[in-house]
């Protein structure tokens, strides 16, 4: 564990609390992509099957359980109690393409041919693009509530810190994970545009609106 990875994981945790806070405070999930949230649930379930096969640390296991449980809970909130506030008409990104694409990539370039490694690779590829329905929805509506922007920013910052974690681990441990690196780099690049708009608008206290 290093400072980049620890802060990244904590930002990932924070992003989930920000999202839950937004839904609870505004009593609405307007502007939140159910597709992105459902994709994250699929990502966590398919990646963390090693909960049953490997024990790394209490921290690692607790975080995995939290990510699975919280993503299931968010999908439930959007699907049931907050369904009337869900902006389905703007959440129109074709998420099935992302799942099929990630599945094909997972089969073409798996970490190994063990079923858990294929699912792990699939989840890595899927996580890289899972934010796209959310970014697409924000582009369609042209703006987002500030708190939703904070959520996406925390997620993007978590990914950016993972890049620094990998550079650090490469030099200190010789750690290499090409699949995670490439997918992680792609994932971070997807946030580039968003970062710029966030920093120039939200940080100056203005509404998050796209040009």
């Amino acid at each position: 564990m290093n400072i980049f990875r620890l802060v990244a994981d904590l930002l990932h945790l924070a992003s989930i609390f920000i999202l839950l806070l937004k839904i609870q405070q505004t009593k609405s999930c307007a502007g939140v992509s159910l597709k992105t949230q459902a994709l994250y649930f699929v990502v966590f379930v398919t990646r963390y099957l090693d909960l049953f096969t490997h024990f790394y640390s209490v921290y690692n296991s607790l975080m995995k359980l939290f990510f699975i449980a919280s993503s299931a809970y968010i999908v439930y909130l959007m699907w049931k109690p907050y369904r009337p506030t869900y902006s389905a008409s703007t959440d129109t990104f074709r998420a099935e393409f992302l799942i099929v694409g990630a599945a094909l990539l997972g089969l073409a370039f798996p970490d190994s041919w063990h079923i858990l490694d294929i699912l792990w690779s699939f989840s890595i590829y899927l996580e890289a693009v899972a934010i796209l329905p959310q970014l697409f929805q924000m582009t369609r509506t042209g703006e987002a509530e500030t708190i939703t922007s904070h959520y996406v920013f925390a997620l993007g910052a978590y990914r950016a810190l993972y890049l620094m974690n990998w550079i650090y681990r490469y030099y200190t441990e010789g750690y290499m994970d090409v699949i995670a690196w490439v997918a992680g780099a792609v994932q971070t690049i997807l946030y580039a545009d968003f970062f710029y708009i966030y920093l120039t608008r939200v940080m100056r206290g203005r509404l998050f609106s796209l040009p």
């Binding site: 090693d50 490997h54 995995k64 974690n165």
Partner: peptide, 10 residues
Amino acid sequence: STVSPTHDEL
């Protein structure tokens, strides 16, 4: 094969 022990990241 088994799951690579390097998959220690979240």
